[in-house]
Each structure stands twice: as structure tokens, then as C-alpha cells.
Computed example of a mutant assay.
Amino acid sequence: MKKLILGALLALGATLALAHEYQAGNLLIGHPWTRATAPGATVGGVFLTLDNTAGEADKLLSAATPAAERAELHSMSMENGVMKMRQVPAIDVPAKTKQALAPGGLHIMLTGLKQPLKEGASFPLTLTFEHAGAVQVHVKVEALGASAPAGPKH
């Protein structure tokens, strides 16, 4: 019986650790992550998912972190075979849809990093939404060159 209870508790703990989700009003913020940076790098990108469960659209208006001098909302796109990155004033989160901030697309650009981002570390990031307000999340630092957040380790 003790093994069964211990196993259930360990499974619950693993599920909670993997969840890495936050709630802001009707928005579910899923797994905020970034890539580790090389020594001396001064920029990085933050990626996450925004799941709007409500019938009302929202907007991500800004981001801020003590890990960098600035956190800006950005988009990336291909134009005539050239990757273009631009700052955007807000990121729309339409009603009852998911909005992905991912490598090669919408993301939060960190400039003026105060120290290199090391794999396994995390740092706070405050996201401010038009309707849901401000919420603090913790950004997990994944491996240098990661294309997606790491899954569970066995």
C-alpha cells in the first residue's frame, strides 16, 4: 500500500512539474521557455503558448524581466527568401483559440541580457494582457539550439 501511495505521489509531482502552466483570466499560458545562450550573447527569445478559453479576444501588450534590459514583442517572417524580424505593438489572442509564440514566428525578444542563459535555469517574466492583466511566469532555459521545450526525461 505504501508503494502504491508513494508511486501516486511521484506521478502527481511529475505531472505538476511538466505542466509548467499559468492562468491569467481566461488565458492559459503554457510552458514559457527559452534557449541557452553562448557566452557573451546579449539577446534571446522567449516562446510559449496562449490558450484563450473565453469568448472574448485578448492581447498580449508587453513583457518585462529582470534578466534583460528590454523584453519586446516580435514577429518573424520570410520575405523574398529573407528572414525579417520586427517589433509588434501587441500579439492578438483570438477568442477560443491558441496562439503560439515559437521559434521562427511570434516571440518575446530579450535584449541586453544581464548574464548568459544557462540550460536548466529559470527566470521570472511578467506578461501584461489587455483584459487578463499582468501575470508572472517562470521561463525555463532549455538547451542551446533547442527547437521546442524538452519533454520528460526518463
Rank of each mutant, 00 (worst) to 15 (best):
L113K: 11
T97L: 08
K84D: 11
E130Q: 15
P94W: 02
L113N: 12
P89S: 04
F123K: 03
A100P: 07
G120R: 13
Q136C: 04
V137W: 02
V88H: 06
H107P: 03
D92C: 04
K96I: 06
A132V: 01
Q99C: 01
K114I: 07
V88L: 09
A95Y: 05
M83K: 15
T126R: 07
I108N: 02
M85Q: 09
P116W: 06
M85G: 05
L113I: 15
T111P: 10
P124W: 01
L101F: 00
Q115M: 10
P94A: 06
P103M: 11
L110R: 03
P94N: 04
A102M: 08
E130K: 15
L101V: 00
R86N: 13
H138I: 08
P94Q: 04
L113H: 12
T111Q: 13
H107Q: 13
H138R: 15
K84M: 13
A121N: 14
T128H: 00
P94E: 04
I108F: 05
K118N: 13
A132C: 03
G105N: 10
K118R: 13
Q136E: 11
E130M: 11
L127H: 00
R86T: 11
K98M: 12
A134Y: 04
E130W: 09
H131W: 06
K98R: 15
L125Q: 01
V93Q: 00
R86A: 15
L113C: 14
T111D: 08
